[in-house]
Design a protein around this nucleic acid. Structure first.
Lengths: 70, 70
DNA sequence: ACTCAATGTTAAAAATATTTTACATTAGGT
DNA sequence: ACCTAATGTAAAATATTTTTAACATTGAGT
């Protein structure tokens, strides 16, 4: 599992959702701001559980937030 | 992230897909048999990347394989 | 130009996921 | 009942994700 092939639209979704900050999103899903930042930046892919929580915040299906590029 | 609230239908999907073994599924997604077993058993939730790979094997959307129970 | 909030970076420690190995149990076929 | 393949269990080692903390950068507003 070396090269990560998963992209996400978190940054856009935050912007569309009243410009929610990384800090706010982090608090809503129960992780640190750093974690949100690292995921947005694609440093690593999150746990499935965290991915579900993030999608839930934006009321989007998980696959609309995260995309697996074959 | 203590109590995991994610269920999955991997066992059923393996059964429906010509009774694919844990070993075969593990090989297709590039992890060990133990990892597949632990996930099926709900010991922990996988990485988003692994979740996508598993869903891909069964040609199902991720959310049809894994369900986040609120 | 200054200030402040938001974001990005780095490094180390902690927590969790995954591997490896080895053995126990279960279930089906003969 | 016996064999064998598939599944389950356990413990230790490794890899990856997440936390923590401290500091740098960017950008908007004044």
């Amino acid at each position: 599992m070396k090269d990560i092939k998963i992209t996400n639209t978190i940054r856009t979704l935050r912007f569309l959702d009243k410009e929610m900050t990384q800090q706010e999103l982090a608090e809503k899903v129960g992780v640190t701001r750093h974690t949100i930042m690292a995921i947005e930046k694609g440093k690593y892919s999150p746990t499935l559980e965290l991915a579900f929580k993030i999608a839930e915040v934006f009321n989007k299906p998980l696959e609309e937030v995260f995309t697996y590029e074959k």
